[in-house]
């Protein structure tokens, strides 16, 4: 049976920590303006092992 790509990628079991590690720590980097800030502090680079203590600093969705 043919597999629909959209269905496949929508099934991810993605905790916020996983999302943070993939979205902030991976992916192609091109030259451009990179402005990341958490709680008013500029942030350029994050790693999963640092995020065990830093994840609570990601602004809540209502912020």
């Amino acid at each position: 049976m043919a597999v629909v790509a959209r269905d496949l990628l929508e099934e991810a079991d993605a905790s916020l920590l996983d999302v943070i590690d993939h979205v902030l720590n991976k992916g192609v980097v091109v030259r451009g303006e990179l402005v990341l800030a958490v709680a008013g502090v500029d942030l350029v680079y994050l790693r999963l092992d640092a995020l065990f203590c830093a994840a609570d600093r990601v602004a809540p969705e209502s912020a």
């Binding site: 629909v4 790509a5 959209r6 496949l8 990628l9 929508e10 991810a12 993605a14 916020l16 999302v19 943070i20 993939h22 979205v23 902030l24 720590n25 991976k26 992916g27 192609v28 980097v29 091109v30 990179l34 402005v35 990341l36 800030a37 958490v38 942030l43 990601v58 602004a59 809540p60 969705e61 912020a63």
Partner: peptide
């Protein structure tokens, strides 16, 4: 950098897989 924005970035990339055979994500920001 908010939880909503991070999830939104990922969701946009996932949605591209519906119409593209190859999707290479760009890092947030």
């Amino acid at each position: 950098v908010t939880a909503t924005a991070l999830r939104g970035h990922d969701a946009a990339i996932r949605s591209l897989a519906g119409s593209c055979q190859s999707v290479l994500p760009v890092r947030f920001g």
